[in-house]
Structure formats: structure tokens, C-alpha cells
Amino acid sequence: MTDLSPLLPTAADLINRCKATGLTIATAESCTGGLIAATLTEIPGSSAVVDRGFVTYSNEAKTAMLGVTEETLAAHGAVSAPTALEMVGGALARSPADLAVAVTGIAGPTGGSADKPVGLVHFGLQRRGAAPSHESQVFAGLDRSGVRLATVEKALEMLLALTGEPQAGAP
């Protein structure tokens, strides 16, 4: 069992900030298998903020649930910036949430390559009405659990930073 307790203070800050600003969240997760949503829902009162989580571990799920195109997957692979961006856009398109984060990566211990090493994670982030953004990070030297927890931590921090941005089109 993965210990989420070190992440709970950040999750609580995110939930509280979203409650105060009326923002809701959707997650689109591959390598974390739902751990971002699980961490958020550990916080009492999170139901006012967490709209839904999409766990799309397979390429078929990414396509069926989030609208990631087969062309994107064929050209760039599941672990890529274009896939993360299509995942986050799909999460917002398929939910009423205000904020979305998407993660796709290689948690290991196998599956890496020279171009896509174990620990590589692509993040998609978007606030409704604004352009999506992408970041990638290699969480080198961590085991599978460590990569997944580091991914959740970074996703929570990215969402927290996004709560401070003004709504597009807001007065």
C-alpha cells in the first residue's frame, strides 16, 4: 500500500483553495493509476472540489475515455507531450471541472528506453478557458512507488499554482 500521508498537506491546501474560489478538479491519470484523485479524496470535504478522475492506463482507454487520437499515440506514443495535452483537454471536455491535470509516464522498473527512460513523466495542465500547458520531468533513481508518489506531488503543486491564475474572460 502506498503511503499518501506526506502528500496530504499539499492536497488539503489545494482543496481549501479550490473551495474558497469555487474551482473544481478533474484528473486524467495513466502512470499514477488514480493516486492523484485518491490523494485529493483523502481530504474531508473534497467532494465539493473533486469532480472526477479518469484512469486511462491503456491506449484504448486514453482514446475511448479522453479522446486521445490513435494518430497521436502512433506518432508519439502514450508517454509524450502530445498525449498528455490531449489527455488534459479530454478531461475538461468530458467534465464540468474548472481545472484538470493529466499524467502519463514510465514508472518502471521496466519499460524505459534511451529516449524515454524509467521515471519520465509528462504532465498536462489546463484551466478551463485557457490554453493547456505541458511539463516533463525525469524522476531518476526512484523505484516504481517513488516515481508515482513524486508524480502525484508535482501534479498537486501544479494544480495549486493554477488556482492563483485569473479566469480567462473574467472581469
Results as ranks from 00 to 15, higher is better:
Pro117Trp: 06
Arg144Gln: 15
Leu125Met: 09
Pro171Met: 00
Phe54Arg: 05
Gly22His: 03
Ala161Lys: 14
Gly67Cys: 13
Cys31Val: 11
Leu120Met: 15
Ala130Leu: 13
His134Trp: 10
Ser46His: 07
Cys18Trp: 08
Met1Asn: 07
Val101His: 07
Ala161His: 14
Gly67Glu: 06
Thr39Asn: 11
Arg148Gln: 15
Leu85Gln: 01
Phe54Val: 03
Pro117Tyr: 01
Val103Ile: 12
Leu8Met: 10
Thr69Leu: 09
Asn16Pro: 10
Glu165Ser: 15
Pro171Ser: 10
Val138Gln: 05
Thr39Arg: 01
Ala61Tyr: 07
Cys18Asp: 06
Leu35Lys: 12
Gly112Lys: 00
Asn59Phe: 02
Val79Trp: 03
Gly22Asn: 01
Asn16Thr: 14
Thr2Gly: 01
Ser145Val: 15
Ala81Val: 08
Leu35Glu: 15
Cys31Glu: 00
Gln167Ser: 15
Arg94Leu: 10
Cys18Lys: 03
Ala150Met: 05
Tyr57Met: 09
His76Leu: 08
Ile36Met: 09
Asn59Asp: 13
Thr69Ile: 10
Ser95Asn: 08
Leu14Glu: 01
Leu99Val: 12
Val88Ala: 04
Thr72Lys: 02
Thr163Tyr: 00
Gly90Val: 11
Pro96Lys: 10
Asp115Gly: 13
Phe139Asn: 03
Gly45Cys: 10
Leu149Phe: 06
Glu60Thr: 12
Ala131Met: 07
Met65Ser: 11
Pro117Cys: 07
Ala107Gly: 05
Pro6Trp: 10
Ala170Trp: 12
Thr110Pro: 02
Val138Arg: 06
Ser46Arg: 12
Leu4Tyr: 13
Thr10Ile: 06
Ala38His: 12
Glu60His: 11
Gly34His: 00
Leu23Met: 13
Gly141Arg: 13
Asn16Leu: 15
Arg94His: 14
Gly90Gln: 07
Lys19Leu: 08
Pro109Arg: 04
Ala20Gln: 08
Leu23Asp: 08
Ala168Ser: 15
Lys116Gly: 05
Thr72Met: 00
Ala75Glu: 14
Ala131Phe: 07
Thr27Phe: 02
Ala161Trp: 12
Gly119Trp: 02
Gly45Phe: 04
Ala107Arg: 00
Leu149Met: 14
Phe54Leu: 09
